[in-house]
């Protein structure tokens, strides 16, 4: 498990090193996300579950691949590891479960492509892979990248 965490840590840290950061807030789920530049082919992020008891502030570490990038919309998929650092204090398992995310980042304003609407469908399974639920998330994001391409960059 430590190796998995280290791998994901490496991904997020290396991506963030480019000083390109995006933030997303999913108001219905009270989730705050911080990620590396979501316009890159591969990016990583941290989702923090807020507005809950301190003992339940879970952190989801994600590795994501943009499968299609465009001027209006990006489609992506990724894997997530849902953990709770405070569980170590309570001697509970650190890992809650795993998620598989399918998402879109829509850039509706031509002159403000960094402002994005995010929709994610993310099946979640517990750490034993014998239970879980289907999550849907709707949020607003801002990508702080310096040069957002005006032209389509579809691949």
């Amino acid at each position: 498990m430590t190796r998995v965490l280290l791998l994901l840590t490496g991904l997020v840290v290396s991506q963030s090193a480019a000083a390109q950061v995006a933030v997303t807030y999913f108001p219905f789920q009270s989730v705050l996300g911080v990620s590396s530049d979501t316009e890159r082919r591969v990016w990583g992020g941290l989702n923090l579950e807020t507005n809950t008891f301190i003992s339940n502030v879970n952190v989801e570490v994600q590795g994501v691949v943009n499968v299609k990038r465009g001027s209006w919309v990006n489609y992506y998929t990724g894997l997530g590891l849902n953990t709770n650092p405070l569980y170590a204090v309570n001697e509970l398992p650190l890992v809650n479960g795993y998620s598989l995310t399918f998402g879109t980042r829509i850039k509706p304003l031509p002159n403000h492509r960094n402002l994005q609407v995010v929709f994610e469908l993310a099946p979640y399974a517990n750490r034993y892979l014998d239970g879980g639920y289907l999550r849907t998330m709707l949020g607003l994001a801002y990508n702080f990248r310096r040069n957002t391409p005006a032209a389509p960059v579809s691949e």
Partner: peptide, 17 residues
Amino acid sequence: MLLTLVGLAACQKEPLT
């Protein structure tokens, strides 16, 4: 936070059974 998480994972105690 991630580094903290890794640290905690490495030193977590075995549960008392």
